[in-house]
Design a protein around this nucleic acid. Sequence first.
DNA 1: TTGTACGCGTTATCAG
DNA 2: CTGATAACGCGTACAA
Lengths: 354, 354
Amino acid sequence: MTEPAKPDVAATPAPVKKHARDGKSSATIYDIARVAGVNPSTVSRALSKPGRVSAKTQKLIEDAAAELNYHVNPFARALPTGRTSTFGLIVADITNPTFFDIIRGAGATATARDYTLVLADSAESAVTELTTARRMMATVDGLILASPRMDDDDIRALARDKPVVVINREVDGVPCVVPDVNKGISEAVRSLAANGHKKVAYVAGPSQSWMSAQRWDGVRSACEWSRLEAVRLESSKPTVDGGRQAAREVLASGATAVLTYNDLLAIGLMRELQAAGLMVPDQISIVGFDDIFGADFTTPPLTTVRSPLGECGSGAATILLDHLAGTGAETPDTLRVETELVLRGSSGRLIPAK
Amino acid sequence: MTEPAKPDVAATPAPVKKHARDGKSSATIYDIARVAGVNPSTVSRALSKPGRVSAKTQKLIEDAAAELNYHVNPFARALPTGRTSTFGLIVADITNPTFFDIIRGAGATATARDYTLVLADSAESAVTELTTARRMMATVDGLILASPRMDDDDIRALARDKPVVVINREVDGVPCVVPDVNKGISEAVRSLAANGHKKVAYVAGPSQSWMSAQRWDGVRSACEWSRLEAVRLESSKPTVDGGRQAAREVLASGATAVLTYNDLLAIGLMRELQAAGLMVPDQISIVGFDDIFGADFTTPPLTTVRSPLGECGSGAATILLDHLAGTGAETPDTLRVETELVLRGSSGRLIPAK
DNA sequence: TTGTACGCGTTATCAG
DNA sequence: CTGATAACGCGTACAA
C-alpha cells in the first residue's frame, strides 16, 4: 500500500542528505568539558550524581551544558550501565478499552518517576506476546504484562532476566496486581437476588484467561451464598460479536440474569437480545465487567463490575520501579485492589411474564 | 499509593541480587567469533549485511550465533550508526478512540518492516506534546505526529532534525496524511437536505485544531451548494461532556440538524437532547465524525463521517519508513485519503411539529 | 574534589 | 573476502 514509485530513482540530481549526522551533531560531554575547562569525567559526574562535585564547577558545567543545548545520549549511557530508564507494557489489544486506564495509570507513574513507557500490543496471540516480550527485554529495564496469554513458565522465564510485574493474573513467584472480584460480584448478585432473579448465567471469556476463571468462581460462590442457581456458558471470543453469538445459548439456558466476562460481551449480548424483542431489564438483566469506555452509551446503560484499572496500572508500575530502585530484597508479592458494582439501567427487577 | 513498607529493610539476610549483570550475560559477537574461529568484525558483517561474507563462514557464524542464543545489543548498535530501528508516534490522548486505528495501522506496518513503534500520549497539551516529542527524538529514527496541537514552526523545527510525518493536519514543508473531508461531508449534507432539513449547525472542536477548521469549511460549502443555512457553534472540549454542554446552544440556534467535530461530541449532545425530551432523529438529526468505537452503541446508533484512520496510520508509517530507507530525495508531499458517510439511525427525515 | 584510563558491544575504515 | 583497529558517548574504578 502506498508504495512509492520505484523507477524514478534514475535522475536524482542532488542526493541531498537531509537529517545528516555530519557537522554540528549534538554536543557531547567532551564539548562541555572543553567549554567549562574541566575533564569530561567531571562533567559526567556533575550531570548524573549532583553532589559529587564542587558547587562552582557544578554551575560552570550546567551553564555550559545549557549553552550548548546538551542532551545525554541514551544509548551511550545504556551501554556501560545496562540501564535505560525505560520499561515496557504489553497489552493484548491496544484497541480494547479495558486497557486504557491501565495504560494511563502506568504511563502517569512512569513519567512521574522519570521513566519512559514503551507500549506494545500482542494482537491477542500468546506467541506474538512472547515474541514482543523477548524483543522488548533487550531495550527496557523491566516489563509489565497486562492480562498475559502466555504460559506461567514463559512469564517466569522472562522474570528471571529482568523484573516483571503481571496485571490481572496470579503467577507464582512473580509480583502481581489483581482486582479482587469478590466484593463487586457479591454486590451484583445480591442486587439480582433482591430483584427476584432465581437463575444466573455467566458467559465466560477465553479459556486461557485466568481472570475469566476467577470471575466464574466468584459468581458461582456468590450465587450459592444467595441460593441462586448458576450456570456457565461459553463464548467464541470476548468481543461485541462474541456477545451477539452467545444470545442463543443464554436464551436457551432459561436464566433471567446474565453476567458476562467483560463489557464487550455484555453489550453485544444486550443488543442481540433487544433485537430479538426482549426488554432489558424487565425480562432479562445484564451485568458486565470492567466499566469500559462506552459502557454507558447503550440504552439502557450497562450495569457493570468495575475494576480500578488505573490503580492496577500505576500500582504495577510502582512495584516495578521500586524493584528497579532496588533497595534490596523486596518481594511485594501480589497487590489486591477492590472491585465495585456500578449499578445502571441494564439490570433491575424482573417483571414476570403474564 | 502502594508504597511498600520501608522499615523492614533491616533484616535482609542475603542481599541476593537477582537480575544480575554478572556471570553469563548475553553473548556478544566476540563470543561468536571465538566459537566460529573468525574475527569479530567478520561476525558483525555476517549478521548485518548478508552477502558480504563467504557462504560457508556465513553458515558457521549463524550456527554459532544460534547456539549461543545471540541477540544484538540495540544500544551498542545505535551508538556508531545513530539508527535505532524505532520510530515514535505521538497522539493527543491514548484513550481517545479516534486514535485506535491510527495506532493499529502504524503498528502493523512498523512490525511488517521490522521497526519498533514507540507510543506516547501528550495529554492534550501542546507543551507536553513538544516535550515528549523532543525526548523521543533522542531515541527514534523518525516521528509521526497525529493531530498535533503544537505550532507549525515547532513541527518544522522537529522535522529539521529527523524525518517527521503529520497526520490530520497540513504543515508546509512536512509530509502529511490527511483525510479529504469533502466527499463524506457532501454525502452527509445531501442526505440531510433530502430529508427536509433547512438549517444545519456545526459544533466546532478545539480552536487550534486544523481538522476542525477543515470540517467547518466543508460543512459550510456543502450547505451553500445544497442551499441550506449553516451556523457554527463552539464547544468547551471535544468530549462527551462537551457535547452535553453544547446542547443549549444547539437548541437555541434553531437548527434541525447538527454535525459535530467528532463522535464524542455527537454522543454527548444526543444524550443530552434526548434527556430533554427530544426525539432523534424525528425532531433533530445528529451526525458525528470518525466512526469511533462505540458509535453504534447508542440508541439510535450514530450517523457519522468516517475517516480511514487505519490507512492514515499505515500510510504515515510507510512514508516515514520509505523516507528512512532513504533512496534519496523523495518528497511525498501530502497523502490524501477519502472519507465516507456511514448512515445510521441518528439522522433522518424531519417530522414537522404539529 | 578532580583527572586518567579503560570498558560497554557494535560498526566503519582501512589494510592485507 | 577477512583481520586488525579506531571510533561512538558515557560511566567508573583507580589514582592523584
